[in-house]
Simulated scan of single mutants.
Amino acid sequence: MTDRAVRVDARLDAPLSRWLWLIKWLLLIPHYIVLAFLWIAFIAITVVAFFAILFTGRYPRGLFGFNVGVLRWTWRVGYYGYGALGTDRYPPFTLKDVPDYPARLQIAYPQRLSRGLVLVKWWLLAIPHYLVLALFTGVGLSGVTSDDGSWSVTFPGLVDLLVVLAAVALLFTARYPGGIFEFVMGMNRWVLRVAAYAALMTDRYPPFRLDMGDAEPDEPTDPTPPWTGGRSARTLMPSNGGV
């Protein structure tokens, strides 16, 4: 594992089915049900971790491992499904890392976390990233009309649009366009980095960088922002392996 907090890798499987993507929503229903409960637990654990970090500067390792597993499970389902359509191999029902699965996520366990940053990084510091992610993943708007009616509208994100294009290409050519895959991977990688940061799992600020391609690139620069007090990424995230 390279010296970075979050590592997102994926392998584009070939050949991919021309038509399987049409029913993946149906095949994934069991995963969606399980993930609904896992994400309830994820949120509750993040609240517990918030107070643990605030008072001790540490994220309880057992809770950290569980939340990494939830993100890992979510990434595998998204990669198989409509977050990428990058594989036809059905996702396993496990929180553990599956080394031979085409989509993998690893997050390095932090020995120490800033007790001050935990108060602001998940909302204030992450706001610029949330704006970018709204472009990637889409946004929904709702409101109330003057006659007490309600309305809502959902705008698809770039990931949705590109995955639709990839699905159409698969249907007619049985090939996933390489350029679309790289762009989709870059946006998913950005989303997962921000998710880990907002979930208090790292103090390392996500880079404003679209790292495209299947493999996680080497880190060109230290993206640690000035509000960390000048501590390096190595100080915040010791290189002790991934969870």
Rank of each mutant, 00 (worst) to 15 (best):
T137P: 00
P223R: 13
V191L: 09
A167S: 15
V144T: 15
F155G: 04
V168C: 08
R104S: 14
G138K: 06
L85P: 06
A199P: 08
F37N: 00
I43P: 14
N240F: 01
L35F: 11
R76A: 02
D9C: 07
Y109P: 01
Y197A: 04
W25A: 14
V144W: 12
R72F: 01
L141W: 09
V34K: 06
A166N: 12
L22Q: 04
G83V: 11
T173G: 10
G140W: 00
D9M: 00
L158P: 02
P238W: 04
T94P: 02
P128N: 05
D203V: 03
T228Q: 10
G242A: 15
I107Q: 14
A166W: 01
V47M: 08
F66W: 09
L119N: 05
S152F: 07
P15V: 01
L71P: 03
G149T: 07
Y197S: 13
A215H: 11
W21T: 03
P225A: 08
R7G: 05
A36P: 00
K96C: 01
T173K: 12
V68W: 01
S150H: 13
W75T: 06
L113A: 07
V98Q: 09
D148R: 13
R7V: 03
G230E: 07
L119K: 01
W25I: 07
